[in-house]
Design a protein around this nucleic acid. Structure first.
Length: 954
RNA sequence: GCGGGAGUCGCCAAGCCCGGUCAAAGGCGUAAGGUUUAGGCCCUUAUCUCUUAGGAGUUCGUGGGUUCAAAUCCCACCUCCCGCACCA
């Protein structure tokens, strides 16, 4: 039994002692590999482990290839979730505290400290870091930092002043979910039940009545030309309010909403809805519509008053129908005069779609729940397929999907409209207060709408390597679609906006160029760099090469040598060579990362590569708290060992696929590794004769495998690489050992040793601990992680490969025949094809490689040639050869076309006998097809073909 | 709706870009055998159908097409997953 944790700890300490992963500039070429840093609000689980493992393998691979690799890590403290958690701890939230205790095993004394947000971050920071160490990540820990370190804050201030100078930070208004009591924006983790506040923008269209403005909320401003009346609920007590310099009539709920939408509001008095029934309202100064009663109008929706468009809104149509039947007498009379006004024509609908759908669904009255469905149907069909009719003035002919915005803008410019934001479903803050939508008028944005900024980003993406390349289009799409993005919040941990201290730089905006900060972090941690006197000039010099070291030195009270050294470090390590992250960060972080780099840094420091990976499933299901199937990383390391987990995650899926993690696969990997470890004590270095065919073959295979594995890792196709290292080698070795055993050889230990050494080196980036242990047992001193990545010989001898392929295929044929005939063999005879057949074969291969696949033409050619005119007698032979060659890979065909034919008779008679004897227990006779002395009772010899000798089994 | 991705022989999953190495890798599962006191681990063999000579047939979401040849290229359709924001 192997004690994984002990082996792992041993080598971890080894790496630590020799400062294996501490990168300093030197004469070697560098690779700067980074991963999106973690947000420490919970321990990491195996899902998090995937991205870091991929990056670590990447780093270790380049290190073995002779690069000076910097692989650092930081911790993202910025953000609001931790703040919300601290609040919940303070409130004694049972569920959360239980999670800490039972799921995360946080000591009770620690939890009580969690009322302070930073303590939460600190705790999980330490926890996550320890996990990364235990996973064997080759991180240079001297460069660790958090995003609330004083120097980091200076750095972010610099970043933002830079962006502002370039006019990329702009101010504007922005709606947010808002708790009126806390006076704070709310996001998902601030609400009861963790509901994301989700809201919709409605257009308020202003009607006039008795000197009052009657605003109605709608999502369909394009139907305004079809309005026939307004709906008011007679039983609601409406409010008359002063809005800026107009008097509005709205429901009480609406009045409250409006307060937060940047309007000056004062309440006048209450009016019963019934008072307005029967009155006339006007719009566009001329159109007059009656105000009618309707019970479906809800006080809490919109303004509590609705514009009625019976031609296109099923609710309105049905309410009108109801009213004609049941209304008060004079109302019935008014209703009877109203006719739906069609303003949209849609394929598949007549002029009054609302009527059609209401009648088709057999809707009874305006309380019928089917009306929702009817509304949806009309809405979506008209939106995508409708055009505005002749009676819509200058908008006639526009598609509904386009007209919506055009008409909205037109209404706004003529001051007949306003905006209302409304939560899609009621949301309560953790404090219990009902939330609203508030418009922040002084919100700061990063102006990702800026065209020249987008252009630069696209230029950068174009030159970048994106792995896997499939997601490249997604990046392009995101860049095109990005608008202004709010870049500051009013609470949370982080850096205050340098010019407006009331705002904190938002977490997705202070994490976009921090890779540059890793260069500084080492000096911060070493105490040489402190925040107090750091000025922008320092960052300008270090990161952009602006100004000079002596000015910076005197201004920031830093030794000039130090300033120069830091600049030199930056010049050496930048740009970022690879950025790893999960695919969820594609539409945000990764895109912002590029955008901010191209804004701030000169082109030579733009990032070189992005590597994106999919997520990790547990037993085929998404990991989630509620499912209770989260596997904490550190626990998994204790139970199974770091290397088996690393491999299980990597081998279960290619980069972008979701990786399915399950215990069986971890166990399978574990025993596989344990077997390899066992083997590594078994072989010793020794001279080996490269005389036998199978030796040449296995050594050639070894070269091929190295080439395959290397190419795969270079493309970050780690699953494929691992497959080669773990399994393909195995099948090669299986054949080799069959051959060796058949011959009773005892001189192969040297070869096996060489192969295992190579495999160990190939394995080491993936499973660094166990590979190191194997390396030691194999008798090497020093670290395998420092040894060179195996390199294939450029000249690979193809002859033994062909020879062994021939033997394999004959063995397969024999087995096949035995299986079908179920005879017990007494004697096996092989006949190899005649020389002229080889010549024909060669010619056919050549013409196929040359593009000729037509059998008739090939035969004609062959007959025309004296040397191969024999085929006349046996056209079937040509057919079989052609189809045989066609089922071979192009590469092999090419090889056969170029190479001289192998001597099948010689190979089979010298190599096959031992195998046949060993595996079938019988003797073997070999003849050439037309050997006059051959033993051929069944006349089989004539069926021999090149690479397909004829067989006789008795 | 927009954008992206996927549907492969019990399950997971390669192959598709660059058509013939493809009845289609590998892992898991299953079955038989070996090893073992027994079990586990491990090893061997088998695992679409048919076949007493190395062969044939039918398969890669569905339906068409291109080609000497299609899992792979083209068209249409069906189904599933993810993102659509100010949240890390």
């Amino acid at each position: 039994m192997i004690d994984w944790n002990k082996i792992e700890e041993k080598w971890r300490l080894g790496w630590q002692n020799t400062k294996e992963f501490e990168a300093e500039p030197d004469s070697r070429p560098k690779k700067f590999i980074t991963v999106a840093y973690p947000y420490p609000n919970s321990p990491q689980h195996i899902g998090h482990g995937r991205t870091y493992t991929l990056a670590d393998i990447h780093a270790r691979f380049w290190r073995m290839r002779g690069y000076n690799v910097l692989f650092p890590m930081g911790f993202h403290y910025t953000g609001t979730p931790i703040l919300g958690m601290a609040k919940r701890v303070q409130e004694g939230d049972k569920e959360l505290i239980e999670n800490f205790e039972k799921m995360y095993h946080v000591p009770r004394s620690k939890i009580s400290e969690f009322v302070e947000p930073v303590k939460i971050a600190d705790y999980f920071h330490a926890e996550i870091k320890q996990g990364m160490i235990e996973m064997g990540y080759s991180i240079d820990w001297r460069r660790e930092f958090t995003t609330i370190d004083p120097v980091y804050k200076k750095f972010i201030e610099w970043q933002f002043r830079k962006l502002k100078e370039m006019n990329l930070v702009v101010q504007g208004s922005h709606p947010v979910g808002w708790c009126p009591k806390d006076q704070n924006p709310v996001s998902q983790h601030d609400t009861l039940g963790d509901v994301e506040p989700d809201f919709t923008e409605y257009i308020l269209i202003k009607f006039h009545c008795d000197g009052l403005v009657i605003p109605v909320a709608t999502l369909r401003p394009e139907t305004v030309f079809g309005v026939t009346n307004l709906w008011i609920n007679p039983s609601i007590k409406y409010k008359k309010i002063q809005v800026d310099n107009e008097a509005w009539l709205v429901s009480p709920e609406c009045a409250r909403k409006l307060e937060f939408l940047g309007k000056k509001i004062s309440h006048l008095h209450d009016v019963q809805g019934a008072e307005f029934v029967g009155k006339n309202a006007t719009i566009f100064d001329k159109k007059i519509v009656p105000v009618l009663p309707a019970s479906f109008v809800k006080s809490e929706n919109g303004t509590g008053i609705v514009m009625s468009v019976p031609a296109h809104a099923p609710f309105d149509y049905q309410a009108l129908v109801d009213l004609r039947k049941n209304g008060a007498k004079q109302i019935q009379e008014i209703a009877a005069t109203l006719r739906p006004v069609s303003v949209i024509t849609t394929d598949g609908f007549g002029p009054i779609p609302a009527k059609e759908v209401v009648e088709r669904l057999k809707i009874q009255d305006q309380t019928d729940p089917l009306l929702e469905e009817a509304t949806k149907e009309v809405y979506s069909k008209e939106f995508y397929g409708g055009t505005l009719g002749e009676n819509t003035a200058q908008f006639a002919g526009l598609k509904v999907s386009e007209a919506k915005d055009t008409i909205r803008d037109w209404l706004a410019s003529s001051k007949t409209s306003d905006i209302l934001f409304e939560l899609n479903s009621p949301v309560r803050c953790r404090c219990g207060t009902e939330c609203v939508v508030k418009i922040l008028n002084d919100q700061w944005f990063l102006n990702y709408l800026d065209e020249s900024w987008k252009d630069k980003a696209n230029a950068c993406f174009e030159k970048m390597s994106i792995l896997p390349n499939e997601i490249r289009t997604e990046f392009n799409y995101v860049v095109g679609w990005l608008r202004e993005r709010a870049c500051a919040r009013q609470h949370g941990l982080g850096t205050p906006l340098p010019w407006d201290q009331g705002w904190i730089v938002e977490s997705l905006s202070d994490s976009v160029i921090y890779m540059a900060y890793y260069v500084l972090a080492k000096y911060v941690n070493g105490g040489q760099l402190v925040a107090d006197d750091l000025a922008d000039g320092f960052f300008d010099y270090v990161m952009l090469g602006l100004g000079n070291a002596s000015d910076v030195s005197s201004r920031c009270k830093l030794p000039e040598e130090l300033v120069k050294k830091i600049r030199a470090d930056f010049v050496y390590f930048y740009p970022v060579d690879a950025r790893h992250s999960g695919r969820d960060l594609v539409p945000n972080h990764l895109t912002f990362f590029v955008l901010n780099h191209v804004a701030i840094f000169p082109q030579e420091n733009w990032p070189k590569q992005i590597v994106v990976n999919g997520s990790v499933l547990m037993d085929g299901k998404k990991m989630s708290k509620s499912m209770g199937n989260i596997v904490p990383l550190r626990q998994a390391v204790r139970d199974y060992g770091a290397d088996p987990i690393r491999l299980a995650i990597i081998i279960s899926a290619e980069l972008l696929q979701d990786a399915d993690f399950n215990l069986e696969s971890v166990n399978a990997i574990k025993t596989k590794l344990e077997n390899m470890l066992d083997e590594s004590s078994r072989y010793r270095p020794a001279q080996f004769p490269k005389t036998e065919s199978e030796d040449g073959w296995i050594l050639a295979r070894l070269q091929n495998r190295i080439v395959q594995a290397t190419a795969a890792v270079e493309k970050m196709r780690l699953r494929e690489a691992l497959h080669v290292i773990l399994f393909s080698f195995e099948s090669d070795l299986q054949w080799y050992s069959r051959r060796v055993q058949a011959k009773n050889r005892s001189d192969v230990s040297g070869i096996l040793y060489k192969i295992l050494s190579t495999r160990t080196a190939l394995l080491s980036p993936f499973a660094p601990h166990i590979a190191q242990e194997m390396w030691e047992r194999l008798g090497y001193s020093g670290f395998v992680s420092k040894s060179a990545w195996p390199k294939a010989e450029t000249e690979i001898d193809q002859k033994p490969i062909q020879a062994e392929e021939l033997l394999m295929s004959v063995m397969d044929d024999i087995k096949n025949i035995l299986k079908v005939t179920k005879i017990i063999p007494q004697k096996i005879t092989v006949y190899t094809a005649d020389a002229w057949k080889n010549m024909v074969y060669q010619k056919i291969v050549q013409s196929i490689v040359g593009g000729q696949t037509n059998i008739g033409a090939i035969i004609k050619d062959l007959i025309a040639d004296r040397e191969t005119e024999n085929v006349k007698k046996d056209p079937e032979f040509v057919k079989k050869v052609v189809s045989g060659i066609l089922t071979e890979p192009a590469e092999l065909r090419k090889l056969k076309a170029e190479m001289a034919p192998i001597d099948e008779y010689k190979i089979i008679s010298s190599e096959l006998g031992s195998l046949v004897k060993k595996e079938f227990g019988v003797g073997l006779q070999v003849f050439s097809e037309s050997d006059p002395a051959r033993y051929d009772p069944k006349n089989k010899a004539r069926t021999a073909r090149p690479f397909k000798p004829a067989l006789l089994i008795e």
